Computed example of a mutant assay.
Amino acid sequence: MDYRISDEHADPKDAPGLTTEKVVYLPDCFLCYTPPEIAPPVVLRPAQESYGCITFGCFNNLAKVSSQTVRLWSQLLREVPDARLFLKSKALACPEVQEKFRRAFCSYGVDSSRLDL
């Protein structure tokens, strides 16, 4: 890939990124989504109403989840005792990978029933 289309909000010209692509800047395109006129109004609801509790989540590649990350997430879950953690990754289709994460959180005092894998 030689070019990346962006704008000055996502990629400020005075703070070049770490990419090798040349950035092509478009004016006024940051978060340019406009919902259709027939879209229903946005209604914000507390997490407790929609899922029953506060739920933190990560949908990232598990190869990027370090032991330090698990330790910090565990600390967060201990400080918010009714919260859950939802991890979504293709790798979690494997029961052995799920068990590895359950054991890791357990080692930091987080019961595996609080994990949605």
Rank of each mutant, 00 (worst) to 15 (best):
M1E: 12
M1A: 15
D2E: 06
D2I: 01
Y3M: 07
R4F: 05
I5D: 06
D7A: 00
E8M: 03
E8D: 14
H9Q: 12
H9V: 13
A10G: 05
P12I: 02
P12D: 01
K13S: 10
D14A: 02
D14C: 02
A15M: 09
A15N: 13
P16C: 09
P16E: 12
G17D: 12
L18G: 14
L18I: 12
T19W: 09
T19N: 09
E21R: 07
E21P: 07
K22C: 11
K22F: 08
K22R: 10
V23K: 03
V24T: 10
V24P: 02
Y25C: 02
Y25M: 02
L26E: 08
L26N: 06
P27F: 07
P27Y: 08
F30H: 08
L31T: 11
Y33I: 04
Y33T: 05
T34E: 15
T34G: 07
P36I: 01
I38P: 08
A39L: 05
P41A: 04
V42A: 06
V42C: 05
V43L: 01
L44M: 06
L44Y: 14
P46L: 05
A47E: 14
Q48H: 14
Q48P: 07
S50A: 12
S50I: 11
Y51W: 09
I54M: 08
I54K: 09
G57P: 03
G57D: 11
G57E: 15
N60C: 10
N61Y: 11
L62I: 03
L62H: 04
A63R: 05
K64S: 15
K64A: 14
V65G: 08
S67H: 15
V70S: 00
L72K: 06
L76W: 09
L76E: 10
L76M: 13
L77G: 00
R78A: 12
R78T: 13
E79L: 11
D82H: 12
D82C: 07
D82Q: 10
L85E: 03
L85N: 01
F86V: 12
K88Y: 14
K90Y: 13
K90H: 13
A91W: 04
L92W: 03
L92E: 05
A93F: 10
A93V: 08
C94E: 15
P95D: 09
V97N: 02
V97S: 04
Q98D: 14
E99A: 04
E99D: 15
K100H: 15
K100R: 09
K100Q: 15
K100D: 15
F101T: 00
R102I: 03
R103I: 08
R103M: 10
R103V: 12
A104T: 01
A104S: 07
A104C: 04
F105D: 00
C106Q: 14
C106W: 13
C106T: 13
Y108R: 00
Y108F: 14
G109Q: 01
V110D: 00
S113T: 09
L115F: 01
L115M: 01
L115P: 00
L115E: 01
L115K: 01
L117A: 02
L117I: 02
